[in-house]
Design a binder for these strands. Structure first.
Lengths: 211, 211
DNA sequence: CATAAAAACTTAACATCGTTAAATTAACAT
DNA sequence: ATGTTAATTTAACGATGTTAAGTTTTTATG
């Protein structure tokens, strides 16, 4: 008769053990530079054991992304309690950038690498849950600014505004992560670049009186 | 005595033959998915022959980047003749984005991948030559707008302005290339996102009277 | 307690990759 | 003709992601 040598909880624990070990290695060297055998050695298992819990390396990376998206949502959610909507939006964008610059390998994995069809249905995270979905947080924050009537009157699509703000902050972070050592460019200080982007976007999108 | 079975020109021809074949394969599938053996087969040589001309795969990728940077500078230079400085800047940014969206694998290779120390000294391209250096074109264009007194008076560093504009357009392109299939986001039309970014940056950086 | 079944896990092995070493071919100077 | 040497190829190495085949461990039942 079929025994039940491992409870559901134990399976889950080993799963997160793998994820944590892999995540730890990815922080310092990025996913391409880390091998399945190395992850396995780290937790005292054989490399093939990982395949009992993840279909392949990509699936493991996706699972790590899931935990990272949760970590991002967690890192950002404290900003939701800032009372002034514009201040809230600015602080949120700044915190987002800090996350990207502090964890470049994870940021690269999350937002700079194409993954085969990312579907919320396949994720453990809940879409449109402010605790777990940082993009939903962004949408909410931008929408609050919109409802407060702070944007210029011809800006009528809050989600398009949100995607543009995201793109602006992402652009600064992504260039920094990929190109900081490029000697073709005399890079200005990264904080100055972030500040300039926020200044330009705020001035360009908000009504003049609020600048 | 030393024979000379291959002239300098023939060596150069084979070199560009390799680059063109690799470039061709990279266009459709990206560099990671293309193998040295496949490139070699394409030109009727053995894989090891490539190593007579390039130290390793990374060096080959860098050489391809070189030709791509030249192609980018070429694609953008027609905008330099636009008479109005602001119009010129807008058209230039738009053309840059079109290049990125039309050749996503090359754009990824050029601007979204960290390369081990990119030094102009190691490149065949001439830095600060408007024919070959697209970043120099950008700096020049932004500086012209600056000298025409079109920017808001507290924006006093044209190169910082240029890097911010670049980051803005790059952010839209990069998110599109990496995340277009991400179902967490209800992406707005890419052209609308580009237009929104340009509008926000122009409004945020230029004097009000010019919007 | 003994044993059969099946889950958990490991060892071996495979195909493929980038790359290097050894072997081979071909072209020139003498 | 022949030896030297560049050009090129074939063989091979080590590493990687992954799969197949084995081994150990656990537990429900006789």
């Amino acid at each position: 008769m079929p025994p039940k040598p491992k409870t559901q909880l134990e399976r889950q624990q080993l799963r997160t053990l793998i994820i944590d070990a892999a995540r730890d290695l990815f922080v310092s060297r990025g996913p391409e530079a880390v091998t399945m055998r190395e992850i396995a050695k780290r937790i005292g298992y054989s490399a093939t054991s990982i395949y009992l819990h993840f279909a392949d390396k990509e699936a493991l990376i996706r699972a790590i992304c899931d935990t990272d998206f949760l970590a991002l949502a967690n890192a950002l959610k404290s900003n939701l309690s800032i009372s002034d909507p514009v201040e809230r939006m600015l602080a949120f964008g700044w915190a987002y950038a800090q996350f990207g610059l502090n964890y470049p390998n994870h940021y690269r994995m999350m937002f700079m690498t194409e993954h085969p069809l990312s579907d919320p249905k396949l994720s453990a995270l809940q879409q449109n849950n402010a605790e777990q979905d940082a993009y939903f947080q962004l949408k909410t924050i931008v929408n609050d600014v919109y409802l407060a009537g702070k944007f210029k009157p011809d800006l009528t699509d809050p989600e398009l505004i949100a995607q543009t703000i995201w793109a602006g902050m992402h652009g600064v972070c992504a260039l920094q992560i990929s190109m900081a050592n490029d000697m073709w460019v005399n890079w200005r200080d990264i904080e100055a670049r972030l500040q300039m982007m926020q200044l330009a976007l705020v001035r360009g999108m908000l009504k003049e009186s609020l600048e």
